[in-house]
Amino acid sequence: MDKICTYFGRFKELLEEFYVSPYRGAVARARRDEDDLFMLFVFGELMGVPNPATYYTLELQPLLLERFHDWHRRQGFEHSPLDGFRCC
């Protein structure tokens, strides 16, 4: 009986995974795109995209520094586009 329960439990998990995982990927991508856009607002000035509020977004930069490396890689820059941040 226990064995059957475990079997069904495992089956349920697989089924869930089967239906949910495509959405998970899509939502994760959407979120990543949203965060990438936010990164562009904060670091855009340094990449030549004018920012009307550099003075205010500057204080956000330290908080986003850890995400900077992944972000610039995704934006198609193999190495940090900024002279200032040599993260790689």
Binding site: R24, R32, R67
Partner: peptide, 17 residues
């Protein structure tokens, strides 16, 4: 959707976050 399980496709930002 069980966010921790995302793999591949360079979604590393999710993990970082």
């Amino acid at each position: 959707l069980g966010g921790g399980k995302v793999r591949g496709d360079d979604l590393s930002l999710i993990d970082a976050a």
